[in-house]
Each structure stands twice: as structure tokens, then as C-alpha cells.
Amino acid sequence: MLNLRHKYVFLLPGLLVLLAIILFPLLFTIRVSFSSWDVVMPGLDWFGGRNYTRMWADGRFWEAMQRLVMVAVSSVALQYVLGFSLALLVWRNIRMKRFFRVLFLVPMMTTPVIMTVIWRTIFHESLGPLNNFIEMLGLPAVPWLSTASTAVISLVIVEVWQWTPFMFLLLLAGLLSLPREPFQAAAIDGAGPVRTFFNVTMPLMAPISIGALIIRLIEASKIMETVYVLTAGGPGTATETASYYIYIRGLREFQIGYAAALSVTYLVLMIIALTIIAKILARIMILKD
């Protein structure tokens, strides 16, 4: 009993700091979401649930949420496929393995805002190098950022380029930690590389894959700076994601109370969605095994 009490006493300072860091901003945001804090009404008055009522009728927010789901899911799926492929490539004994491992990590080590500025220059339709290259091949120039569909594709390309290395890193770590015996057993049983991959590698990698996908989905759902620099949400509202919309409402328009309500709702929806996704992934990838 005394030991238990000692444990709590020693844990308390850390717990209090943790609570202060995590809990206070969250509780404060919830409180702000019930205020009318904006550019003319500073402070925490009581505004009831009017920010939430307004949010239900705010079509732009819900459209931005749908767009976010589309961008996040498609970019993370592509990152997973590419990251896994690259990890498998350098997992094997190939030449210059170490060089490639470092090379594949470079995009993740760059600053997202700076890289997005560079990507914007690459995508620049009249002055950028990408269209020059495409035209050299005899193909027509692509309006990368000026039509709705291509702007979304451009956004996904930048996201995939920037974050595939993260997926690669986690999956490579997973591959390197796998036991050798199941692979030896599969080889003795005469399984080819494809069968080994689907029946041995994939099931063994399921827990780490789920972790990597969830971490990336959480990060991808916060996509803001790429949108801000690349398209500013346009053309029209074609690339306006939820977090960019919240930024506009909160920091550009200074509707702090309303932006807090949007943030709280967004957080709740994300927790629910990601919990469901994690359960589905676990069922597909682990229970099947």
C-alpha cells in the first residue's frame, strides 16, 4: 500500500505537467467554442450553442470535411503502397542499400512550407519546369493548379512526395524486426515471392502497418500549410480542406469562438473516424490472418 502511494507521489508531477499540456488547451478550446469571441467581442462571454448551430448550416465546412477525407485517404493509401514498395526494395540485399535508405528519407527532412513553394514553382503552368518537360515529350501542358481536378491531384502529389518516406521508415523498421523462421518455413514449403509476401510478410507486418496508417491519417487530416501555399483552397473551393477552412475562419477572419466550435467538432469526428478505421483495418489485416 505504501509502495503504491509512493508510486503515485512520484508520478504526480509528470501527470500534472501532462494534464496541463494536453488537457488545458483542450478544455480552453471547448470553453471558447461556447463564446462569441471575435474581432469586436474579445473574451469569454457565454454564447450558448449558437456557434454549433451555425456550424450545422455551414455547407462550406461540411464540403471541406468531405474533401479532406478524399485527400487524406487517397494520399495515405498511395504513401502506404509506395512506402511499402520502397521498404521491400531496400530490405533485400541490393547494392548501395544504405545510400538509398538515406535518399528515400530526404523529402521528409525538408520543411513542408519551403517544399510546397518549390512544388508550386514546379507546377507553375507557364514558367514552371514540369510543363516544359511534358511539352518536350510532345504532350499538351497540364493546368496543374488552375482546374479543380488537377489542383486536387497536385495536392495529393505533394503530400505523397513529402510523407512517403515516413511510411517507408516505419515499414522498413517493421520488416527488419521480422523473425526469419516463417520465411524459411515458407521457402521450405516451396512458396514463391508473391505467395510469401501475401501469406507471410503482410500478416506479420499488419500491426505496424495499422500503426503507420493511423499515424499518417491523423497527420494527413491536419493538412493546412500545403493547401495554404499551393492553392489557397482554390480554384474556387476545390482544395479547401477542413483545417484550412478553420484557419481562415479563426486566424484570417478572427472568428475565434466559431473556429473553436469547428475545431472541437473536427476533433470529435476525427476521433470517431480514426477509431472506426483502426478497428476495420485490424479486422481486415489481423483477424484474417
Binding site: V39, R60, A148, P235, G236, T237, E253, F254, Q255
Partner: peptide, 22 residues
């Protein structure tokens, strides 16, 4: 006027929708 950011932001969003053909 107070809230000029809100007025101009919503103006830009609307104009942008028309420019994009939405």
C-alpha cells in the same frame, strides 16, 4: 469597418467560385 477580414474573405471565396465555374 470592423470585421473587414470576414467581409473580404467571403468576397474572395465567392468570386473564386465564380472564376472556377462552380
Amino acid at each position: 469597418v470592423p470585421g473587414v477580414g470576414q467581409f473580404m474573405s467571403s468576397l474572395a471565396a465567392g468570386v473564386s467560385e465564380a472564376m472556377a465555374g462552380q
